[in-house]
Amino acid sequence: MKLPLQLWIGFGLFAFFVLAVLLSFFWTPFDVTVLDISEKLLPPSSRHLLGTDHFGRDMLSMLMVGARTSIAVAIIAVGIGVAAGVPLGLLAAANRGSLLDEIIMRGNDLVFAFPSLVIAILITAVFGPSAVNAILAIGIFNIPVFARVTRGAALSLWTLDYIMAARVAGKRALRISLEHILPNIANVLIVQGTIQFSLGILAEAGLSYVGLGAQPPTPSWGRMLADAQTMIYTTPRLAILPGLAIVLAVLGLNLMGDGLRDFLDPRLRRARQ
């Protein structure tokens, strides 16, 4: 079976950013914590490949360190969504039609009515701004997403004969959920995880841009855009570069998600042939 082309492109783009992040822990072209006003707003050159910003910091180094924030926030937020959403979804599916199922699903609907921006606003209004807010806000928003996807996928499995056989054999719902359901819905969860990851990067950028996410001096792509806004007339490069980084990272993840879905779903594969 040949891997889809978009999976390769997506994976390549994503791997590029992951490598940049890993590299940034050991080496960046320049130190981003050192401000050097005499070097400010330099155009790209062999010394500063992407030029410098208004504080004289090297843009390439800023982008590399900024990628950490974006990727870390998005990964942890997906982790929160999976850790809370998947058990809830499994529980709801195992008790289909029960009061518990109803409570979980209505709870989902309720959380779903709060866009992550609104959650971030609420948290920030009470606890003040920080990168943790962005993680929490995006993570909480992810919970109902994973709960719904898990429940939907698990429900269709519960009707299958081999699950019936496991029940007849005396296995409890918890064991069936963990041993039979979870491994079989892993595909769906991986694809959804990729999608939420890319949405998380977009959301983090938006939150940091309006000041609800990463705080100075932590570099983040969203904050770099906010800083660049007033300089868009004179140095548009500062606004264009972080945006391009976001687009490429999100594009990579989306292509990877689409490619994985096509690759992992045998029904789709057949439909395409």
Binding site: G206, A239, P242, G243, N254
Partner: peptide, 8 residues
């Protein structure tokens, strides 16, 4: 289009 942040 999906990958572009709207504020950017």
């Amino acid at each position: 289009g999906i990958a572009v942040p709207n504020f950017w």
